[in-house]
């Protein structure tokens, strides 16, 4: 899975971003190596989701650069970035609610498949073959996250925890090399969170590099190889979970040393 074993998969280089007068990100720099799980933590409003949006090309960065596998991300459209191998989920689960569970995952295959308007109308053998391929792969992914029995349910009718799993399956369908998860455990109970941790391990075993924003510290500390701590748009610390936990600046931010906004 790793194309350039010597370099990082993702390099975030002095990225800054402001909205009006608010500095959402200032001079953020870190690398994500292939195969690792990178945790991104920080109080509310620290800029974690903004960072996700910048990395996926949803917002342009004001300054700085984002390099994915040696390719510059800024200036590319979102679907092109997905094409490079970056997928994401959303904090508030964004499913296609009028579509079935299976169809949701099938949309995830969009960027890896080709047939278009004419193909859809003519249904030539090649198109049908591709359609079957999409379906099979999507069913596999549903099994992978444990939703194989729900394939034909309306996705909006799923319980919330399953919606999260479905969103992950949909993201995986685009064959990402890097998967960004925005608070995947939010709204899950303890059992579900445990299952999620186990799922994340299995995703990593597939060779997918993970980056996650998460408030559940025990989950983050357990699954992450490295952690970046943001606070009010600035990078407070980075290192292994152990290093970060003992970092004084982090302790100050989290335990009320001045400006913990949480």
């Amino acid at each position: 899975m790793v194309d350039n074993p010597n370099g990082p998969l993702l390099a975030v280089q002095s990225v800054s971003k402001s909205f009006g007068g608010v500095q959402a990100l200032s001079d953020i720099t870190f690398d994500v190596d292939p195969g690792m799980v990178m945790g991104l933590i920080g109080p509310n409003g620290a800029g974690k989701t903004t960072l996700f949006n910048v990395v996926t090309g949803a917002y342009p960065a004001d300054t700085g650069d984002i390099i994915f596998e040696g390719i510059r991300v800024p200036g590319r459209k979102i679907h092109q970035v997905v094409g490079l191998g970056v997928a994401r989920t959303f904090q508030n689960v964004e499913l296609f609610e009028s579509m079935t569970v299976l169809e949701n995952v099938m949309v995830g295959r969009h960027i890896r498949t080709r047939s278009g308007f004419w193909g859809a109308m003519t249904r030539l053998p090649g198109v049908l073959r591709e359609e079957k391929e999409i379906r099979d792969r999507s069913l596999d992914l549903l099994s992978f996250v444990g939703l194989q029995d729900e394939a034909h349910r309306q996705s909006g009718d799923l319980p919330f925890g399953w919606q999260r799993l479905l969103e992950i399956a949909r993201a995986l369908a685009s064959d990402p090399k890097l998967l960004l998860l925005d608070e995947p455990a939010a709204g899950l109970n303890a059992v579900e969170t445990g299952q999620l941790g186990e799922l994340l391990e299995r995703i990593r075993d597939l060779g997918v590099t993970l980056m996650l924003v998460e408030h559940d510290m025990s989950l983050t500390m357990k699954v992450s190889d490295r952690i970046v701590v943001l606070d009010q748009g600035r990078m407070l610390a980075q290192g292994t979970p152990r290093e970060v936990q003992s970092d004084e600046a982090v302790m100050a931010a989290y335990l009320g040393g001045g400006h913990a906004s949480n």
Binding site: V82, G83, A87, F96, E97, M99, E103, H110, I111
Partner: peptide, 18 residues
């Protein structure tokens, strides 16, 4: 499917590569 996904959530549709 991609069309219908725009109807449901354009944000997610774009994020998934449409």
């Amino acid at each position: 499917r991609a069309l219908r996904s725009i109807h449901d959530s354009e944000k997610a549709s774009r994020a998934i590569g449409v």
